[in-house]
């Protein structure tokens, strides 16, 4: 039997995280809370102060919290509150939450020790905030490769940024951000090894375009199965899994590592 959970979303969360569309695609799992009813799941936007808002939701009895596009913030108090209440906090990132990254993580891990170079480019609309782009970009990178070493900004400006780093095996890594309306927004990863590597293209969460993950080696190239699911729906589905199982996701711990990495960039 499928358990259904009630939810309530702030207007900003709904706008930024397409909450209505995401839960409409999970109609047996989530339903709107009735007026005056305490929702079992709270969806909030990740603007400054989101950890306090999430704590308030947990204190009010929410069993789950979905945070849309969280900004860097100290999550230690929220982690304690969520653990104490047994509440599941899921962070819904623009690219790092794309469900295709589950397979991509395995592909990257399989070449981690012998990667010769990482070249990754994130693209967002012209006139956007390059700092926000970098945070979203780094979230996806750190999810795939783990924390970077020697990370530092080489250049930042109105058209984007270039960030230099080293992978765990000391191979050079470069993160480039580009603000342009001339190409589709998304993030592209190229990890090169001596016999091929892994390429990953992660689309925007505004539609269910699949991420493309290709692993290339001596015997040829494999395209991992494509998943036509947005990052937003994937986050809600993941929350449902934790709520059903009574487990707590590791999102906040991972976010603390990301925040520390962002702090190194100044």
């Amino acid at each position: 039997m499928n358990t259904s959970y009630t939810f309530a979303a702030t207007q900003e969360a709904d706008e930024n995280g397409a909450v209505g569309a995401a839960v409409a695609a999970l109609p047996l799992s989530f339903r709107p809370a009735a007026t005056g009813e305490n929702a079992q799941v709270a969806a909030i936007a990740g603007a400054a102060g989101w950890t306090s808002e999430a704590i308030r939701a947990v204190d009010a009895g929410a069993r789950g919290v979905v945070v849309i596009a969280p900004h860097a913030e100290d999550t230690s108090a929220l982690s304690r509150a969520a653990a104490s209440a047994g509440a599941a906090v899921v962070l819904d990132h623009r690219w790092a939450s794309n469900p295709g990254l589950v397979g991509a993580e395995d592909a990257v891990r399989s070449v981690a020790g012998r990667t010769a170079m990482l070249d990754t480019v994130a693209t967002s609309a012209a006139g956007g905030d390059p700092e926000q782009l970098l945070a979203e970009h780094l979230a996806a990178v750190v999810r795939l490769t783990g924390p970077l070493e020697s990370v530092h900004v080489l250049h930042r400006g109105p058209h984007g940024y270039t960030v230099s780093a080293r992978l765990a095996n000391a191979a050079p890594a470069t993160l480039q951000g580009v603000l342009s309306d001339g190409r589709a927004a998304g993030v592209d990863f190229r990890l090169y090894t001596n016999d091929g590597g892994v390429s990953i293209t992660v689309p925007e969460p505004s539609a269910a375009w699949p991420a493309e993950v290709r692993a290339t080696a001596g015997q040829g190239e494999v395209l991992l199965p494509t998943l036509y699911e947005t990052a937003h729906r994937g986050s809600w589905r993941r929350l449902k899994g934790h709520l059903d199982a009574g487990t707590l996701p590791a999102d906040l711990a991972g976010f603390a590592r990301l925040t520390a990495q962002l702090a190194q960039l100044g």
């Binding site: 010769a116 170079m117 012209a126 006139g127 058209h159 580009v178 603000l179 342009s180 309306d181 001339g182 190409r183 090169y192 090894t193 001596n194 016999d195 091929g196 590597g197 290339t216 001596g218 190239e221």
Partner: peptide, 20 residues
């Protein structure tokens, strides 16, 4: 990257605010 890969990829890109 010149390696033992079989797969060549040789690209050039130029990007402005509104064109690619």
């Amino acid at each position: 990257v010149m390696s033992s890969t079989w797969k060549p990829e040789w690209t050039f890109e130029a990007i402005s605010d509104d064109a690619d």
